[in-house]
């Protein structure tokens, strides 16, 4: 059998430093944005990076661990509400409350998983959604947090970040950039690690993975809890930027799960590049066509159906074999034989 197609991730070793240099340059360029860009484009980029991180996390769960959740809004909302509760009820400075929000989301994810993991297949997906609805209804009952109509972050607390709006935006931009880079970097490292091997095996065939000694349940639980924690952190960051939270927005299945699934599916599930491309495409489409109103929504729907029918692996599965290059290679080459 002769191989004519270039192997993914089989470039000469010397390519790696070049790749890392390019990635570092992109990150540095992104980091410089607050120094020259307008507030509007800065906020757009914050939203973009938040979605990149959310899409990477959803892909880690669905694309690798086989956990198709349509309830990630549970943790976005939980993170946001944790930040607002800590700030408003206990006077904790918002920036300090950010990591706490992630931590709380991870802790709550544990018992949530024990319930959701009893369900399998489509029941798991629906179960996660129902659980998120329960959280939404729960927070709507809390009068101290504005009940169903929501609450704003008091100006005094907002000013603890910085008195100046521009500086505040820049700080939130840099935190979001750091979070987004960390999420991609950690997932890339994870995929190249021993656990990543196990996750890739679960992705491709769970029964075979279990039979080869991969303790699939434990690995899935770890992925679920970690993703919930990071999603909670991102949720807190989202609402710190919005300065206002309400149950409808915080636990919106459309904003925090459906759009994310769209991006992952369009871009390509089960890789790091796929969700990234999906996010880019979504934002380009939205900026170009969103004033087409409902036609824009119809277009998005048609695009995702077309992808599912004709390119199940998403855009990346069409691109990757043609260019034979991976931005984030994870394949492990067999050791060279002594010749």
């Amino acid at each position: 059998m002769t191989m004519t197609v270039a192997m993914p991730g089989r470039l000469p070793r010397s390519v790696m430093p070049v790749r890392l240099a390019i990635l570092a340059a992109v990150v540095l360029a992104m980091a410089s944005v607050p120094l020259w860009a307008s507030g509007g484009s800065q906020r757009l980029l914050v939203e973009f990076m938040t979605y990149v991180a959310l899409a990477q996390l959803w892909n880690l769960m669905a694309g690798y661990a086989g956990l198709i959740s349509i309830g990630q809004q549970a943790f976005v909302g939980l993170g946001g509400y944790t930040l607002f509760s800590l700030a408003i009820l206990a006077g904790v400075p918002p920036l300090l409350a950010l990591p706490v929000a992630g931590f709380v989301a991870a802790i709550v994810a544990w018992p949530t998983a024990l319930v959701a993991f009893r369900l399998s297949g489509p029941y798991f997906a629906i179960g996660t959604w129902v659980i998120a609805e329960v959280y939404r209804l729960g927070f709507a009952q809390v009068g101290a947090l504005g009940g169903g109509s929501g609450i704003s972050l008091p100006v005094g607390l907002v000013k603890t970040i910085s008195a100046d709006r521009g500086t505040r935006d820049s700080i939130i931009y840099w935190i979001t950039l750091a979070a987004c880079v960390a999420v991609i970097g950690c997932i890339w490292a994870l995929m190249r690690s021993r656990l990543g091997l196990g996750l890739a095996a679960i992705r491709d065939d769970e029964v075979a993975a279990e039979s080869a000694g991969v303790v699939t349940r434990r690995l899935k639980l770890q992925v679920y809890v970690i993703c919930a924690g990071v999603t909670g952190f991102l949720g807190a960051l989202i609402f710190l930027q919005k300065l206002r939270i309400s149950p409808e927005v915080a636990f919106s299945v459309n904003d925090w799960t459906v759009l994310v699934i769209f991006m992952v599916v369009i871009g390509g599930i089960g890789s790091i590049e796929g969700p990234l491309i999906g996010c880019l495409l979504f934002f380009v489409l939205r900026e170009q066509f969103s004033d087409w109103g409902s036609w824009y929504m119809v277009g998005l729907g048609a695009l995702s159906v077309a992808t599912m029918l004709f390119a199940r692996g998403g855009l990346w599965s069409l691109i990757a074999p043609r260019i034979g290059f991976r931005l984030f290679p994870v394949a492990r080459a067999a050791p060279r034989r002594p010749s």
Binding site: L197, G198, D205, A208, S211, A212, A331, R332
Partner: peptide, 25 residues
């Protein structure tokens, strides 16, 4: 398995690595 169940997204070598890393106990 009677009907083979390879991990299709991993290389042949990586298929063995999974078994080696996780299956040895």
């Amino acid at each position: 398995f009677q009907i083979p169940r390879p991990w299709v997204g991993l290389t042949v070598y990586e298929n063995l690595l999974v078994a080696a890393e996780f299956g040895a106990g």
